[in-house]
Design a protein around this nucleic acid. Sequence first.
RNA 1: GCCCCCGUCGUCUAGAGGCCAAGGACGCCACCCUUUCAAGGUGGAGAUCACGGGUUCGAAUCCCGUCGGGGGCGCCA
Length: 506
Amino acid sequence: MGEIQGPVRVRFAPSPTGYLHIGGVRTALFNWLFARHYGGQFILRIEDTDEKRYVPGSADDLMASLRWVGIDWDEGPDIGGPYAPYVQSLRHEAGIYRPFIEQLLESGHAYMSFTTEEELERMRAEALARGVKAFRFRGPERDWSLDRQREMAATGRPYTVRLKTPTEGVTAFRDLVRGGERIEFKNEELYDIVLVKSSGMPVYHLAHLVDDHLMRITHVLRSDEWVASTPYHVLLYQAFGWEPPAFAHLPPILRQDGRGKLSKRHDDVATNRFWERGYLPEAMLNYLALQGWSYDGYTEIMSREELIERFTLDRVQPSPARWNPEKLLDMNGIYIRRLTTEQLADAIAPFLARAGLISNPPTAEERAYLLQLTPLIHDRLKELGEAPELLEFFFREVTYSDPLLLVQKKMDAATTIAALQAAYARLAPLEPWTHDRLEAELRALCEELGLKSGQLFGAIRVAVTGRTVAPPLFDTLAALGKARTLQRLQAAASALAAHTEVKVQS
RNA sequence: GCCCCCGUCGUCUAGAGGCCAAGGACGCCACCCUUUCAAGGUGGAGAUCACGGGUUCGAAUCCCGUCGGGGGCGCCA
């Protein structure tokens, strides 16, 4: 096994049962990278044969999630294609699966099973009670003639169609992720799976396989949890007399604690949550590509194009990866730092608007101001959603919930108030109000007052921003403007005075 | 329970018999830079390559067993 040759067609076939989580995006991504690397096609197909778990709107959400990270498809439910439709319920309505079911019945590879769900349930429970290790159901009808099956069906008894699995021998397939190694199952350990529900709706096993064949899928890259059902698929390909595709089972992404697979219930991993919090799609794409795949021992930051160029199946890891939000966060920071000021400003604008700090879309003045503020937080941002918090004091008045924060090391309320007032006096006449002039004046003031820069600047920082952690001071003052700076110096001094009942000299 | 898959620093990984007294990244710690926080720079702790047997002159790399983890055992996908 080695080189992949010939045209490549792969698909991502999610079921619309809720939000797409990042594990699903990873599976889609590997398929997409594989298709793009070999110049093949990537197909999106919606597998909605489970009427019970269907969640309206989730197909749209899932497509939005894929588009967000930049995954596009060559054929799909929204854009059609030569094998349309790309939604299984629609294909079922169009009668696409019917002849194939008929074929299986005729050839004796499948049979009508009249055992009801309730009976099955009871049998399972009894078997368990008897201490049977594994309940492997094979219906008595598997030995009936097709005519007899049809007669029974004609009486109106509901039935399912089951695959008549062999009871001896082995079924095997090769897996590209494991270097083309053979994975083998004993047929006696299989059971007669349902192919068509009593409602007449085909089940995943049948539908996906017929579709893959009809759509000329060459490689099936899917999550690891499918290896156990692959022998059934192999058996089905044999029953139809079709050439099976190549299989590649991708390692799962485990929860952070390693206990089980990632799930929406336990982990905050719905894809749309990441754009809400301000993750860059490039960062997500890059992070996800590294979950189970690597290029070499040291290259991590790779563009979409580099990923496409470098992605091959032989570098996909068979062992599970583990969800690591800290690594993603770090990577997001890297991608944010690579943005230009303009790009970042435009990226954070919606977040500021949502926080009510600016309008949506921003006015020309707001955008200009934002362009001035963006460099102050550029290196400090890891999620775009943090921007409103970091920038809030530029848009709203500050309050001093704890005035004692104004007091720096080795200072007290009195000296702090004096320092703030001295700063006020020093800056009031300052013209022009620029970074360099502010720095020169305030450094000189440190000398005069006999204060360390940390002390004076710290006090001013809290006075002007209302917080102990903020962007660099002179940039902040310059961006804030003279009027507001002076007003806040005064307000802070008063607040501290009121709080400590120190008398303010006027 | 049965079947299948997997097993290198806490985490993601490099490693395809000698270049490995195991390299990179995240996280962690320290120092430098510095007005706070970041960013950046430098350094550090952290893996007897799950364990035990083989094969071989030589094994993280090959084989077997054990243990551990994960997955599957549905008229869900």
